[in-house]
Design a protein around this nucleic acid. Structure first.
Lengths: 129, 129
DNA sequence: ATACACCTTCCTGTAAGGGGAAGGTAAAGG
DNA sequence: CCTTTACCTTCCCCTTACAGGAAGGTGTAT
């Protein structure tokens, strides 16, 4: 099938699917005469796989890793779990940063009258030495 | 003072400070003969301000806004508070997405033995139709 | 035959700088 | 006075993961 259908079936944009072909993530055959990419249903399955992994915040490189593990019938679940746990650690770190940030901003905002006067503790904090 | 000192005093990199000059965020005078940028202590204060705002996850454009509010002696605290509250809303949304993500990944990981056998619920989930 | 949908490659842009090359300038040391 | 060293300049490419759009080829329905 052509790229449009493959994109639709995998819930990705044509642009993204073409991008994955260009970087060698999912490389379909290309019709010699028309130049059109021709996707098999197995390739569509890989695209779906990638789409889901991307939603799980895995980077393209991590998707590449996961995909090769997925294709390797001899891989152990240990390898996959390791990548997943690393990802969870990353997310925890991001969560902490965002929570801290939110607390500070929220503290500043709650101390700001938000009225028509110029007095503003938020800017004061930002301009502190 | 030269850019190196300004960068050190504001806890920014020289690259970042030069970048801010290029995009017109903090534009110092430039010595006509040497071409060196010459920073005043007021400009360093603005750099510090930006550095802090960036740490608070404000984008460059938001920094520009905050900076102009900061410089405008007639601005009201309402304007600043509005931007800050919007930022908090953004952060809350990010936090929710990350939490959901973490829950799903953590669920998958906890169901994966992580042993030397190939059976892996994480990959199974990713390859589901 | 033509209209229209779909496909191709190629180029540019995104956010916020980092890395590094090639070369000019300033200040310290001998 | 000369050289080394440190610092400065501009310029260009790299990063992530595509999106947008131009110019042009292909396939199909009417």
């Amino acid at each position: 099938m052509n790229i449009g259908k493959a994109a639709k079936l995998s819930n990705l944009t044509v642009k993204a699917v073409r991008y994955y072909a260009n970087i060698g993530l999912v490389k379909p055959q290309q019709n010699i005469f028309s130049g059109y990419r021709e996707y098999t249903s197995e390739e569509v399955a890989k695209l779906k796989f990638i789409g889901k992994a991307r939603k799980f915040d895995f980077s393209i490189n991590e998707c590449k890793e996961l995909l090769s593990l997925y294709e390797d019938k001899n891989r152990t679940s240990k390898e996959v779990k390791k990548i997943t746990l690393e990802k969870i650690t990353q997310i925890d770190s991001k969560l902490k940063d965002l929570r801290d940030l939110r607390n500070e901003l929220s503290f500043l905002a709650s101390n700001c009258n938000g009225d028509d006067r110029p007095n503003c503790p938020i800017l004061e904090e930002l301009s502190k030495n």
